[in-house]
Amino acid sequence: MTTFVVPLVLIGGLTSAGVYLLLERTLTRMLLGLLLIGNAVNLLILTAGGPAGNPPVRGRTSAGETATSDPLAQGMILTAIVITMGVAAFVLALTYRSYRLNSDEDVDDDVEDTRVKTESTTLDEDPPAPDMRRDTDEPDELDALPGHEGSR
């Protein structure tokens, strides 16, 4: 099997540009990165599908080819195109909603994530000891079992 270098370089370039754009903080650039990666995957499937040949219809020939082309690659590419467009529509809707709410499409740091990160770095190595006064088998106000005095 002959491997052509140009499609592989094109696939690598599209994938690397798509990953670079996905790592940005702007939702529009993330969308463009998703589209570039989707196109790179489609080219990869087309390249892996093998050489061109006769149409996959019994009794049909094309330009004197002896082998029949694989229809699975074409079906997978059509499916990948539909999935990529669905994801693109979803990200576009998220971008529109984010812009309408914040009048900005940049993704900001989450305040809660920042708080958890700072707390996790300030904690000691040893976890706090459990409160043994609350650790009993007797029903208390937190139990929701019917028939016990502690249930509401």
Rank of each mutant, 00 (worst) to 15 (best):
S103G: 11
G53P: 03
P71K: 01
P128H: 03
D124S: 15
T84I: 05
D104S: 15
E141K: 14
D143M: 03
P71N: 04
N102E: 11
S69W: 05
A67N: 12
V116K: 07
T61W: 04
L101H: 13
R115L: 08
R100D: 07
R100P: 13
P55E: 00
R100C: 08
T68C: 05
E119R: 09
P55V: 00
M76F: 15
T79V: 11
M76I: 09
L123A: 13
D113N: 06
T68Y: 04
T122W: 07
D104Y: 06
T84S: 13
P139R: 00
T114L: 05
T95F: 02
A129P: 14
A73E: 07
A89K: 03
V91I: 09
L94G: 10
A144T: 13
Y99S: 12
V82I: 12
M132W: 11
D140L: 04
A67Y: 08
D135W: 15
N54P: 11
S69T: 13
A129K: 14
M76T: 08
D108W: 07
R58K: 05
G86K: 01
P127M: 01
E65A: 13
S62R: 07
A88R: 00
V57S: 02
V87A: 05
R58N: 03
G86C: 08
D126C: 06
V111A: 05
M85N: 13
A67F: 09
A88D: 00
V91E: 04
M85P: 14
G75Q: 06
D108C: 11
P51Y: 02
S69Q: 11
G59V: 00
D109Q: 04
L145Q: 01
L101A: 14
G75H: 10
T95P: 05
